[in-house]
């Protein structure tokens, strides 16, 4: 899988951030990272990533709020976001979609499935 634009991975958990960025890189994607919601919005505006993988439980500005802000910012509202949540509850799925996420994946991440979701969203 390849994309001309990098994937932005927003994850405060060091272990997970490392693991996911390794796996995404191995899958042929370029990965940049951010560790909180505010940083994510800055990087999105500056780097214009092809897609964002965003943990919802972030410090400073949580994932739900970051998503909503991104959707209201004309400069970055077109960038697809996949929410990474720790819960498999239907209510989380609904809130993720309501917050403006395009898709969501639950932890522990089923990687092959995540790749399919990414592929669907970054394919022109």
């Amino acid at each position: 899988m390849s994309s001309s634009r990098p994937i932005l991975l927003v994850e405060d958990n060091e272990l997970n951030r490392d693991m996911l960025s390794r796996r995404l890189t191995r899958a042929g994607l370029t990965v940049i990272t951010a560790t909180d919601g505010r940083q994510a919005l800055t990087v999105m505006a500056a780097e214009q990533p092809g897609l964002v993988l965003m943990d919802m439980n972030l410090p400073v500005l949580n994932g739900w709020s970051a998503c909503r802000q991104a959707r209201n910012d004309p400069a970055i509202k077109h960038i697809p976001i996949i929410a990474l949540t720790a819960h498999a509850m239907d209510s989380d799925r609904v809130s993720a979609l309501e917050a403006g996420c395009d898709d969501f994946a639950t932890k522990p991440i089923d990687f092959p499935q995540l790749l399919v979701k990414i592929d669907k969203l970054i394919r022109p």
């Binding site: 958990n13 272990l15 996911l20």
Partner: peptide, 11 residues
């Protein structure tokens, strides 16, 4: 946090 750790282990 627990799911994060389990997710990392799985990965």
């Amino acid at each position: 946090e627990l799911l994060n750790a389990l997710s990392a282990i799985r990965g």
